[in-house]
Amino acid sequence: MEMKVNEQTVLRPFYTTDAEAFYRLTMDSKAHLRAWLGWLDHIKDVSDTEKFIQSTHHDLKETGGYLKSFAIVHEGEVAGTISFNELDLTNRTGALGYWLGEKFQGKGIMQACCRCLLYYGFETIQLNRIEIKVAVNNTKSKNIPEKLGFTKEGRLREKEWLYTTFVDHDVYSLLKREWTQ
């Protein structure tokens, strides 16, 4: 399954052959991403990335065939990832998570990818509600739900442990009836 975001970008499943490139992207962006991603220090070598990619293939079994995690491929390079970190088919809700390598940021890639995944979530999976939870000081990431018409619902206090401190998250949501393609 591959989804065309625009002329330069596609969302597709991770392939085992992506492991080296995705690992390198993670390591090259580590200092930049570490402020917002608490799992980076657990990535020690390419085998950790291989395990992540293998786990994305198991998602299909638990979701009845819906892919949850996508590689963002921009101009032929793996640029990051976007996924439904939470997917509750019974209640028709999902929660998006995403990150881009540092050299790919500031080009509108993630906003376009989120728009594509909103379509997938609302039209293909038939979700009613999609959430984005983001650290309160992560202004770049918060811009995405705000630009896409999400409603800020509130704040989750001390939601995530980031290496040395707890951080609060703002919660944004978009309902299918509010979504404009």
Results as ranks from 00 to 15, higher is better:
72 I>A: 00
93 T>N: 15
28 D>C: 07
73 V>K: 03
178 E>G: 01
80 G>E: 00
76 G>N: 08
84 F>H: 02
72 I>D: 00
142 K>N: 05
42 H>P: 10
13 P>K: 09
24 R>S: 13
76 G>I: 02
6 N>F: 12
3 M>Q: 06
93 T>A: 03
19 A>G: 14
5 V>D: 01
66 Y>C: 01
135 A>H: 13
181 Q>K: 05
70 F>S: 00
8 Q>P: 14
44 K>R: 12
28 D>W: 14
120 Y>I: 09
137 N>P: 13
85 N>T: 12
81 T>C: 12
59 D>M: 04
42 H>D: 15
101 G>C: 04
170 D>V: 04
52 F>V: 04
23 Y>R: 05
4 K>R: 13
157 R>S: 11
153 E>K: 10
117 L>P: 14
39 W>K: 10
126 Q>D: 09
177 R>V: 03
178 E>I: 05
178 E>L: 11
40 L>T: 06
66 Y>I: 02
98 Y>V: 06
100 L>W: 01
20 E>P: 05
180 T>A: 08
129 R>Q: 09
118 L>M: 05
70 F>E: 00
28 D>E: 15
160 E>Q: 14
36 W>D: 00
77 E>A: 03
100 L>Q: 07
82 I>C: 06
167 V>F: 05
63 T>V: 06
38 G>I: 13
79 A>T: 01
50 E>C: 15
142 K>V: 09
102 E>C: 12
17 T>G: 13
131 E>N: 10
163 Y>N: 04
125 I>E: 01
